[in-house]
């Protein structure tokens, strides 16, 4: 049984279909990427999993449990944490307060303290800026904070929405190295949605390709890298 199983998921915004019935799964310990152009429905997919987009059909199973109709905060309690597109840090709260919200549903103080240490170890920049308002951080630092905050929830499944958005290539690379490390060394299951196909293929075991609300292709990332149409349409390489 897969950790996350999505069956025929449909979402509409008004009358406009955003997801036209997609199905896929993520196994425990896996890193899976979804790539595709703007408006393909990648973000909507993550929102639907997290329970902040209304689903109009299909089912979502997590750990064997049907979470299709569950309210967002309960889904978080089951172990799914999402890092939103554009970071979504709270600019009016300090770095430490932002991190504390990641552990909002937890009561195990000693373990939370360990996770603070872990997050500060992964992102030493955050330790330096603990007391600073999150709104004053740079884009890269905000992305670190958003990921760190999700780690504070100790999720079983980490959803990442466009972690490269608005970041320089160098910082993007660092962020993706961290993601890969989390997956490899901490065995964290990761579902990442990304326009930067190169990074997405590098970080993941398997990749799905979305186009206008449908999954049109899926396969092992290593093999996809060498497919001609991927190289042309998504990696910008010439023959």
């Amino acid at each position: 049984m897969a950790l996350l199983e999505i069956k025929d998921l449909q979402v509409k915004y008004g009358v406009i279909p955003a997801l036209k019935g997609i199905s896929f799964e993520v196994e425990l310990g896996e890193a899976v990427a979804i790539i595709g152009a703007n408006g393909a429905g990648k973000t909507t997919t993550l929102h639907a999993i997290s329970g902040i987009a209304d689903k109009c059909g299909g089912q979502v199973f997590f750990n064997g449990e049907d979470i299709t109709k569950m309210p967002a905060h309960k889904i978080v309690s089951r172990g799914i944490s999402q890092v939103q597109e554009g970071r979504g840090v709270f600019p009016n709260l300090s770095v430490a307060e932002n991190l504390s919200l990641g552990a909002y549903l937890r009561n195990d103080k000693a373990e939370i303290a360990k996770d603070y240490e872990f997050v500060y170890e992964v992102f030493p920049r955050l330790l330096e800026r603990q007391k600073q308002m999150a709104g004053t951080l740079s884009g890269g630092e905000q992305q670190m904070l958003a990921i760190g905050r999700s780690l504070m929830a100790r999720p079983k499944l980490l959803l990442l929405d466009e972690p490269s958005m608005g970041l320089s290539p160098l910082i993007t690379e660092n962020i993706f190295k961290t993601i890969k490390k989390l997956n490899k060394e901490r065995q964290m299951t990761i579902l990442v949605v990304e326009q930067n196909a190169q990074m997405a293929l590098w970080v993941s075991h398997r990749t799905y390709i979305m186009e206008t609300g449908n999954i049109v292709y899926g396969g092992a990332s290593k093999e996809l890298k060498n497919q001609d149409f991927i190289r042309k349409s998504y990696l910008g390489q010439k023959d």
Binding site: S50, G51, I52, P71, A72, H73, V76, S77, S81, Q82, Q84, G88, F90, P91, N92, L93, L101, G102, Y104, L105, R149, A153
Partner: peptide, 13 residues
């Protein structure tokens, strides 16, 4: 600041 993000933290808004 942001109800949606707050929900994603597990807050029962």
């Amino acid at each position: 600041h942001n109800i949606k993000t707050a929900k994603l933290m597990g807050i029962n808004t």
